Amino acid sequence: MCGGVIMNKYIQVVTTFEKYEEAKKVAEQLVAARLTACVQIVPNCHSVYRWQGKVESAHEIVCTMKSRLDLFPRLCEAITSMHSYEVPEIVATEIIDASPEYLNWLDRELLPQQDD
Results as ranks from 00 to 15, higher is better:
residue 1 M to I: 09
residue 1 M to E: 05
residue 1 M to R: 10
residue 2 C to Y: 04
residue 2 C to E: 09
residue 2 C to G: 02
residue 2 C to A: 07
residue 5 V to G: 05
residue 5 V to I: 05
residue 6 I to Q: 00
residue 9 K to C: 06
residue 9 K to L: 03
residue 9 K to A: 00
residue 9 K to Q: 14
residue 10 Y to D: 00
residue 10 Y to H: 07
residue 11 I to S: 00
residue 11 I to D: 00
residue 11 I to H: 00
residue 13 V to L: 13
residue 13 V to S: 01
residue 13 V to W: 00
residue 14 V to T: 14
residue 16 T to G: 06
residue 16 T to D: 02
residue 16 T to N: 08
residue 17 F to D: 01
residue 17 F to P: 01
residue 18 E to C: 07
residue 19 K to N: 13
residue 19 K to I: 05
residue 20 Y to F: 15
residue 21 E to I: 12
residue 21 E to T: 15
residue 21 E to G: 08
residue 22 E to P: 04
residue 23 A to Y: 00
residue 27 A to N: 05
residue 27 A to H: 04
residue 28 E to M: 10
residue 28 E to C: 05
residue 28 E to I: 07
residue 28 E to Y: 08
residue 29 Q to G: 11
residue 30 L to D: 06
residue 31 V to N: 10
residue 32 A to M: 09
residue 34 R to A: 09
residue 34 R to S: 08
residue 35 L to Y: 14
residue 37 A to R: 02
residue 37 A to E: 15
residue 37 A to W: 06
residue 38 C to I: 11
residue 39 V to A: 08
residue 41 I to T: 11
residue 41 I to N: 10
residue 41 I to K: 08
residue 42 V to P: 00
residue 42 V to K: 04
residue 43 P to W: 10
residue 43 P to C: 12
residue 44 N to L: 13
residue 44 N to R: 11
residue 44 N to M: 13
residue 46 H to Q: 10
residue 46 H to P: 02
residue 48 V to M: 06
residue 48 V to C: 05
residue 48 V to T: 10
residue 49 Y to D: 14
residue 49 Y to E: 12
residue 50 R to I: 08
residue 50 R to S: 13
residue 51 W to I: 13
residue 53 G to A: 05
residue 55 V to K: 13
residue 57 S to A: 14
residue 58 A to R: 06
residue 58 A to V: 08
residue 59 H to L: 03
residue 59 H to A: 12
residue 61 I to Y: 01
residue 61 I to D: 00
residue 61 I to N: 00
residue 62 V to L: 13
residue 64 T to E: 09
residue 64 T to Y: 04
residue 64 T to F: 09
residue 65 M to A: 13
residue 65 M to S: 06
residue 67 S to M: 10
residue 67 S to H: 02
residue 68 R to K: 14
residue 69 L to G: 05
residue 69 L to C: 11
residue 69 L to F: 07
residue 69 L to T: 14
residue 71 L to F: 07
residue 74 R to K: 14
residue 76 C to R: 14
residue 76 C to K: 12
residue 76 C to H: 15
residue 76 C to G: 01
residue 79 I to D: 00
residue 80 T to A: 15
residue 81 S to C: 15
residue 81 S to T: 06
residue 81 S to F: 07
residue 82 M to E: 11
residue 82 M to D: 02
residue 82 M to G: 03
residue 82 M to P: 02
residue 83 H to G: 11
residue 84 S to N: 11
residue 85 Y to L: 03
residue 86 E to V: 14
residue 86 E to N: 11
residue 88 P to M: 10
residue 89 E to T: 09
residue 91 V to L: 15
residue 92 A to L: 12
residue 92 A to Q: 02
residue 92 A to W: 02
residue 92 A to M: 12
residue 93 T to V: 13
residue 96 I to H: 04
residue 96 I to L: 14
residue 96 I to G: 02
residue 96 I to V: 08
residue 97 D to I: 07
residue 98 A to S: 15
residue 100 P to Y: 04
residue 100 P to I: 04
residue 101 E to Y: 04
residue 101 E to C: 03
residue 102 Y to F: 15
residue 102 Y to T: 09
residue 103 L to Y: 10
residue 105 W to K: 06
residue 105 W to D: 06
residue 107 D to R: 01
residue 107 D to C: 04
residue 108 R to I: 04
residue 109 E to C: 11
residue 109 E to A: 12
residue 110 L to V: 05
residue 111 L to P: 01
residue 111 L to V: 10
residue 113 Q to S: 05
residue 113 Q to R: 11
residue 115 D to I: 12
residue 115 D to M: 14
residue 115 D to R: 08
